[in-house]
């Protein structure tokens, strides 16, 4: 089947390493416009590295990357991409407000020009979408982990991207924020945005996902529709390396 519109992401035969250790050994990944793709796999399987090659922060040693049909080297339409990194400590060495952090998401729009009224309105809309508008003037360091994650998502949404890339958006997020994230994602998908999600397990986002790509040892082990209910555990050869899956029974017994 051919698509008249080029795919949002087209990664072919990607080989990449980090700190001298080979992490990706020939990964193929395609995300069509409007499609929601979940990238699954055990720790160390190369999920995050795949995402970092797509945004260009880990260079490809071999293989090709096209974004919206343009080779990575000549791609300039960055306003079409929203990126939500894995939440580390969102606070830096100097205090910054929620509004200041989210405003950096408008840089592809205003570039070197001053930050204008319509940029400020877009920041307000994105903050309202994740329920953080009333915290706009607060320091990001004063927020909980789930609230910080919502701020990072607002920062990615503020430019109304056509492709949303999220690295473990549900990790360490409380139930209330998980609900907000799922609702936000649903409305973005409804708007027609493509989504590439790194997930540890499908969890509450499962109904939204069109396709799952499972990585193992830097290679694609599965690429197809999500397996209902059972998710990753139903796949042939699944080796149960999730720490929580192994640790849960003994912790309950203790």
């Amino acid at each position: 089947m051919t698509h008249p519109i080029p795919p949002a992401v087209r990664l072919r035969d990607a080989v990449a390493s980090r700190g001298g250790r080979p992490v990706l050994r020939g990964v193929d990944l395609t995300v069509q416009p409007g499609e929601v793709v979940a990238l699954l796999g055990a720790n160390g399987s190369g999920k995050s590295t795949t995402v970092k090659t797509v945004i260009g922060s880990v260079p490809l040693e071999h293989g090709t990357l096209e974004l919206f049909g343009t080779p990575y080297g000549s791609f300039r339409a960055w306003h079409r991409i929203g990126y939500v990194p894995q939440r580390t400590t969102a606070a830096s060495g100097v205090p910054a407000t929620v509004r200041e952090v989210v405003s950096t998401g408008r840089l592809p729009q205003h570039r070197l020009l001053p930050f204008r009224r319509k940029d400020r309105a877009a920041v307000d809309r994105a903050l309202a979408a994740v329920g953080m508008l009333e915290r706009a003037g607060d320091g990001v360091a004063d927020l909980s982990g789930g609230q910080q994650q919502r701020v990072l998502i607002a920062r990615a949404l503020v430019g109304s991207p056509d492709l949303l890339i999220m690295d473990e958006p549900m990790a360490g997020v409380d139930a209330a924020s998980q609900q907000v994230l799922a609702d936000t994602l649903r409305s973005e998908v409804g708007r027609g945005s493509a989504v590439l999600l790194v997930l540890h397990e499908l969890g509450p986002l499962e109904p939204l996902i069109d396709r799952t790509v499972v990585l193992r040892d830097g290679c694609v082990a599965h690429d197809g529709p999500p397996v209902p209910e059972t998710g990753l555990h139903a796949l042939p050869g699944h080796d149960h390396v999730h720490p929580h899956a192994d640790l849960t029974p003994p912790r309950l017994l203790a």
Partner: peptide
């Protein structure tokens, strides 16, 4: 200020904004 703030706050994100 906005550009330098972005690269010092989150370098990976700044790269995706095309800076």
């Amino acid at each position: 200020r906005r550009q330098l703030f972005a690269i010092c706050q989150d370098e990976d994100f700044a790269r995706v904004t095309g800076l």
